[in-house]
Simulated scan of single mutants.
Amino acid sequence: MSHVTPIFTDLVRVETRLYNAVSARLRAEHGLGLGQFEFLEIIDRVPGCRVLDIVGEVAITVGAVSKAVDRLVAAGWCLRVAHPHDRRSSVLRLTAEGEKLLAASRPVVEGELASLTAGVPADDLVRVASTLAVLRASLEAGSHGQPG
């Protein structure tokens, strides 16, 4: 077994436990899953956001992102608006309700993550963040793990 395998296993288990805990709290307090929160964050942050912009960030298929966006639209949290320069495409925008939900959800996500990582020294978290940023950039530059 390579020395990287246990690191990968720990990384996946930590991610799963963090994700599930934050998602459960968000769902309990705001009726919103962490995946939905992430999509709302991306739509809010990326000017002229399209489905492909979300695909590029989360590395899942166009079909999966499109279905998830449809659910956000159905919930009244975002809109698909005709792209001003390409009628075959649409731009995603948060509704007023989506903006309110996102603003109310951000402190929940931050608070839960802070609580879950409180036992880890800040210097260690900084090192982990730096290492993960390098690994993510390397994987994204090589387009490993991109949806097919």
Rank of each mutant, 00 (worst) to 15 (best):
D124A: 06
I60A: 00
L34Q: 12
T16W: 05
S90T: 14
H85S: 13
G31Y: 08
P84R: 14
G56E: 07
T9W: 10
T5F: 14
L94D: 03
S2D: 12
E57P: 00
V134Q: 13
T61R: 03
G56H: 02
E97M: 07
G33S: 15
D124W: 04
A133Q: 13
A96V: 07
G63P: 00
P47H: 12
G35I: 02
I7Q: 11
P121Q: 04
A74E: 15
H83A: 11
Q36P: 04
R136M: 08
E110R: 13
T95W: 07
L11M: 07
S115M: 11
L34W: 13
R88W: 01
A118H: 07
A59D: 01
G119N: 08
H83Y: 09
L132H: 08
V46R: 14
L139M: 11
T131C: 01
V128I: 15
I43F: 06
A28Y: 06
V14P: 00
V69Y: 06
L18T: 07
V126I: 09
R27A: 09
G98P: 03
Y19T: 10
V128Y: 10
R106W: 05
V12N: 02
D44T: 04
G33M: 08
S66E: 06
L79H: 13
G76E: 12
L132F: 14
S2P: 10
E29W: 03
F39C: 05
V65G: 01
F8W: 04
A141L: 02
V55R: 03
S23F: 05
E29I: 02
V109M: 13
D10V: 00
P47E: 14
E29A: 08
R127H: 12
I60L: 00
A28I: 03
V58M: 02
L125T: 02
C78P: 07
E15R: 10
S90C: 13
L139N: 05
